[in-house]
Simulated assay, not measured.
Amino acid sequence: MKHTQLGEFEELVLLVVGSLHQNAYSISIKNELQDKTSRKPSIGALHSALNRLEKKGFINSHEGGATSERGGRRKRFYEITAFGRKALDQSYELRSSLYHTLPQVNYVGD
């Protein structure tokens, strides 16, 4: 399997897509990012990240049914792939291993 690096924002988006499971669509992803990270990503930045993640094979998307509450428009739903989960696992392992190399000392400002 080819290893592809995740940027920080891509990693956060991928984590949120995975955590929302079958309810991952643009607005729910944006709202969850805001709630969990206090960031306010633009919808354009979010769509760019989602497109990159899909192009890399980390997520798949499909359109849901049209609803009257959305004026007959469809929602695009996203789901994490096995490759995306593997990328998150690798990222987690790398960050954890680096974190555990920090010495137990008092740091400036303690």
Rank of each mutant, 00 (worst) to 15 (best):
M1R: 02
M1V: 00
G7Y: 04
E8P: 01
E10T: 00
E10F: 01
E11R: 13
L14V: 07
L15S: 14
L15T: 11
G18C: 03
S19G: 06
H21D: 15
H21Y: 10
Q22A: 15
Q22S: 14
Q22N: 13
Q22R: 13
Y25Q: 03
Y25R: 08
I27T: 12
S28D: 07
S28G: 03
I29E: 02
I29Q: 09
I29P: 09
K30V: 08
K30M: 09
N31E: 13
E32L: 01
Q34N: 13
D35I: 06
K36M: 10
K36E: 08
R39I: 08
K40L: 11
S42C: 02
S42D: 09
I43L: 08
I43A: 07
G44C: 03
L46D: 11
H47V: 05
H47P: 02
S48W: 00
S48K: 05
S48G: 06
A49I: 04
L50V: 01
R52E: 07
L53Y: 00
E54N: 04
K55E: 11
K56A: 11
K56V: 02
G57L: 05
G57S: 06
F58C: 06
I59M: 04
I59Q: 05
S61V: 01
S61E: 00
H62M: 08
H62N: 13
H62K: 15
E63M: 08
G65V: 06
G65S: 10
G65H: 10
A66K: 09
T67M: 09
S68K: 14
E69Y: 09
R70P: 03
R70M: 10
R70S: 12
G71Q: 07
G71K: 09
R73G: 06
R73S: 14
K75L: 15
R76H: 03
R76G: 08
I80P: 07
I80L: 04
T81K: 09
T81S: 11
F83C: 08
G84C: 04
R85K: 14
K86N: 05
L88Y: 05
L88D: 08
D89T: 09
S91C: 04
Y92M: 01
L94K: 15
S97G: 07
S97Y: 06
S97V: 03
S97C: 07
Y99R: 11
H100Q: 13
L102R: 15
L102W: 12
P103R: 10
Q104D: 15
Q104C: 10
Q104I: 14
V105G: 05
N106P: 03
Y107W: 12
Y107L: 14
V108Q: 03
D110G: 11
D110W: 14
